[in-house]
Amino acid sequence: MRKFFLNLMTIICVMIICISGFKIYTTLRGYKKADNIYSQLRETKDNSHSSTDTTKNLSSINSDYKFWINVEGTNIDYPVVQGKDNDFYLNHDFNKNYLPAGSIFLDYRNDFKADLNTVIYGHHMRNSTMFGQMEKFKKEDFFEKNKKITLATEDNLYEYEIFAIGVYDADFGYNTVNFANEDNFNNFLNKILSKAMYSRNIVSSDDKIITLSTCSYEYDNARTAIFAVKK
């Protein structure tokens, strides 16, 4: 009987090792696939002669393409898409194929050029891709030295200066995009600043901002958000 249990435990251990190994393999394969896809898209952008050409070339691949985002001091250098909801691009790549890493995407509610708060989402990948390097801004020295975010559209290059970073509950409202009036927006700014980890006093209710959002691991349903004001 003892030998039977020893053999059974051995089989169980081998099965656990095999399952764990397969999960690691599929995760690494997913990372590699995502890296290849976005490397090709960066090459397409770099080979384009202008922002207009970039938009034309990338839109021919995916009509959901909106603009290109770059965050100073990080590897955040991606095309941004906008779907009909905030679910599809959580696990679909730029080519609209299933991929756990998903895409960097604009909140489906946003009108980028009109809204006071433009919200952009991305996964916090364990290999520090997508929005994984937002984590760097949780170090005060890095926050102080790296301030610039750019959004390159078909006809313009928009520059933003980071004014806050914080960890928020998913239902905190940091990703609100519509505001009834200026006072409402001002209250929103005060609310996010009151819970910010670090901040700069450079934003007012007269400004337009962008919010970068990703998962965080301090507690259940935590989100790291970076806020930047349009220059």
Rank of each mutant, 00 (worst) to 15 (best):
Y121I: 02
Q82A: 07
N184I: 00
F142K: 04
K45W: 06
D46P: 00
I226H: 06
I149C: 08
N36P: 00
I209M: 08
C18Y: 12
Q40M: 09
D77P: 04
D206A: 10
K148Y: 00
M9C: 13
E161S: 11
D85K: 06
Y98D: 11
V80I: 13
S48P: 05
I11W: 04
S213Y: 05
T54F: 00
E182Y: 08
N146M: 07
C215Y: 03
L106K: 05
E72R: 09
G102Q: 03
N62D: 08
K138C: 12
I17S: 13
K208T: 09
A222M: 04
D171I: 01
Y98L: 07
N221H: 10
Y217V: 03
L189F: 07
A170V: 11
L99W: 01
Y98E: 14
Q82N: 04
N184L: 00
M134C: 13
A222T: 05
T153C: 11
I16A: 14
N117E: 07
A170R: 12
S205D: 11
K33T: 11
G83D: 12
A170T: 10
P100S: 08
S51K: 08
N178K: 15
I162W: 08
E161N: 13
G173D: 09
E72N: 06
L41P: 04
I24E: 14
Y65S: 07
K45M: 14
N47C: 04
K195N: 13
S103A: 12
E140S: 04
Y89Q: 03
I19S: 11
T153M: 12
I192W: 03
F163K: 07
T118Q: 11
N117H: 03
N156A: 13
Q82K: 14
T214G: 04
T211V: 14
